[in-house]
């Protein structure tokens, strides 16, 4: 079957989709967006967390056909999503000119094969607050759980700008991490919340 939906603000079309395919499979294998991770395919790990019409869901448990006409945000679009939110517009409402970061995987195969570096680490102008906080706090080790955690944590701070530790733990209780023992993930969310607050205070908003 054919499925049409918007991902990270841009329309996508997938053809020849097998009816049993999940949103996760279609994102990863048909749309060149492998950022959302497949770690359990049973909704027990949260590694594939995406926003579906704004709501955090496990992409592995959404049948691709159920996404027809809907709006999906993945980790690849998280920075743009956060930027649009800060600018006061909802998902996709600020126009579809955002570069689709993940398309780079296909757009320039030579570059990756040569090993040219296009994404220096450190302070990165293109990162959202939560992404930068994960790097700074040491919340990333193997990084496989990171995309799902970022989407879930970003949504928490959107909903509860100054979450308590218990709020953070509850909101992230659907995202397993095997490397960090979660302490530095808590640090990262606290850091992002504090930075968001100081930014908001700084702009007088």
């Amino acid at each position: 079957m054919r499925v049409n939906f918007r991902v990270n603000g841009r329309p996508h079309e997938a053809d020849d989709v097998w009816e049993g395919e999940s949103l996760l499979y279609v994102l990863r294998e048909r749309m060149g967006l492998p950022g959302s991770k497949n770690a359990c395919e049973q909704g027990e790990c949260g590694s594939c967390t995406v926003r579906l019409d704004g709501v955090p869901v496990c992409a592995c448990l959404v049948a691709a056909g159920q996404c027809e006409g809907r709006e999906v945000v993945t980790v690849e679009g998280l920075a743009d999503y956060a930027r649009d939110r800060a600018a006061g517009c909802a998902a996709g409402a600020c126009g579809g000119t955002n570069p689709d970061a993940a398309q780079r995987w296909r757009a320039d195969p030579g570059k990756a094969a040569q090993g040219a570096a296009d994404s220096p680490a450190g302070e990165h102008a293109g990162l959202s607050t939560i992404q930068q906080a994960f790097i700074d706090a040491g919340a990333v080790q193997c990084g496989f759980c990171t995309p799902g955690l970022l989407v879930a944590a970003d949504e928490l701070i959107e909903r509860v700008p100054q979450p308590s530790d218990a709020d953070i733990r509850e909101a992230l209780s659907g995202n397993l991490c095997r490397c960090t023992g979660y302490e530095k993930i808590l640090d990262a969310v606290r850091l992002a919340a504090a930075r968001e607050e100081s930014q908001t205070a700084g702009t007088g908003a």
């Binding site: 492998p34 790097i135 990333v140």
Partner: peptide
């Protein structure tokens, strides 16, 4: 900080899968 941190938080880091 990790040199692969940015790639890992943007979803660009290429895992074997």
């Amino acid at each position: 900080l990790r040199p692969d941190g940015t790639l890992k938080v943007t979803g660009e880091f290429a895992y074997s899968s």
